Amino acid sequence: MSALLSVENLGITFGGLRAVHDVSFSVKPGEILSVIGPNGAGKTTLFNMISGVYQPGSGKVVLEGQDVTGMRPDLLAHRGMSRTFQNLQIFQNMTVLENAIAGFHLTESGNLFADLLRLPGSRGRARTAHQGAMRLLERVGLEASAETNAGSLSYGKLKRLEIARALALSPKVLLLDEPAAGCNAVETEEIDQMIAEVAKSGVAILLVEHDMKMVMRISNHIVVLDHGEKIAEGDPATVSRDPAVIAAYLGTEAAEDADA
């Protein structure tokens, strides 16, 4: 099966500091690939280059065989790439349902004039978005909270809501930046089960996460960064035993988790 997303020799420098250098990997449909490494390893910078937030200094990003290097995030979204961020991007004063509906804005084909006058086409789009948002909330287990103000949700539910909104674009590739950060053990398990279900639907998932138990549990493939360079790559068992990875980041605890 061919890769949906390929990263080829990607690199970027900030003021003479080499933040990411010569990183390559690929993600196939239905695969969960995790990028791990210590703080400052370049993981989020890598995500920002892939998703169009940063223009790479070298290398390229290929989506479904097309070079999309440096393409704007909204254009990448139209091509099937969606992402979440470390910091929640939730509208706290809107309901859960309204937040989910907001995720459909890039796929709407109407115009402002029709929406202001509430013309039939506008009402139809609103109805379609409402139905789609409810299906997404059911998918992430938040349908019972649809009319709840988002600001009153637990942190774990907010993380699930953000993933739901990213799924509104029907992505082929989903980038998740620390989806379990700040969550307790129960919330983390709920999120990793949800991620696994999304992958089963054929979505290629690229994950940055510090919870090593979660990473080892759900990843098909792992890429390890240190000081902006890839130092290891492979399945969870192989990566957890790599001496360079243990020295740089994982320690013996992760290796023991892989044995469990």
Rank of each mutant, 00 (worst) to 15 (best):
186 V>G: 00
133 A>V: 10
253 E>M: 08
25 F>H: 10
60 K>Q: 13
27 V>D: 03
48 N>T: 08
20 V>H: 10
255 A>D: 01
60 K>L: 00
135 R>C: 11
112 L>A: 14
67 D>T: 08
52 G>W: 06
98 E>W: 04
190 E>R: 07
182 G>M: 05
252 T>K: 06
113 F>P: 01
171 P>Y: 02
200 K>M: 02
139 R>W: 09
159 K>H: 08
22 D>C: 06
224 V>R: 11
92 Q>C: 00
88 L>K: 02
143 E>P: 00
24 S>F: 12
82 S>Q: 15
207 L>N: 05
250 L>R: 05
212 M>Y: 04
120 P>I: 01
252 T>A: 09
118 R>V: 03
200 K>P: 02
232 A>L: 03
150 A>W: 08
59 G>F: 10
155 Y>K: 02
171 P>T: 08
210 H>M: 10
140 V>G: 04
129 A>S: 15
218 I>C: 11
71 M>S: 09
13 T>W: 03
134 M>I: 10
254 A>S: 12
253 E>W: 04
12 I>R: 01
57 G>I: 05
65 G>F: 12
257 D>V: 06
63 L>C: 10
110 G>N: 13
230 K>H: 08
251 G>D: 09
30 G>S: 09
105 H>K: 13
223 V>H: 12
188 T>M: 06
79 R>G: 13
75 L>W: 14
93 N>W: 04
182 G>Q: 05
205 I>K: 07
190 E>Q: 11
109 S>W: 13
123 R>A: 12
165 R>G: 04
215 V>T: 11
123 R>N: 13
173 V>R: 10
11 G>L: 00
151 G>F: 06
21 H>P: 00
37 G>K: 06
246 I>E: 00
32 I>V: 15
204 A>Y: 09
222 I>F: 08
82 S>C: 12
159 K>F: 05
182 G>K: 11
105 H>D: 15
213 K>F: 12
216 M>I: 07
130 H>A: 04
47 F>V: 10
203 V>D: 09
132 G>R: 14
177 D>F: 01
250 L>Y: 11
178 E>I: 11
258 A>M: 03
49 M>I: 08
42 G>E: 04
26 S>V: 01
201 S>A: 13
42 G>F: 07
95 T>P: 00
193 Q>E: 13
259 D>V: 00
147 E>D: 14
94 M>R: 11
108 E>C: 03
253 E>G: 00
166 A>E: 07
246 I>W: 00
237 A>M: 03
41 A>L: 01
239 V>A: 01
9 N>D: 13
93 N>C: 04
86 Q>W: 11
110 G>I: 12
245 V>C: 01
129 A>I: 07
4 L>V: 06
35 V>H: 03
16 G>Q: 06
50 I>L: 08
156 G>W: 11
234 G>F: 05
94 M>L: 15
40 G>N: 06
175 L>A: 00
25 F>M: 05
183 C>L: 04
127 R>K: 15
1 M>R: 05
249 Y>T: 04
165 R>T: 07
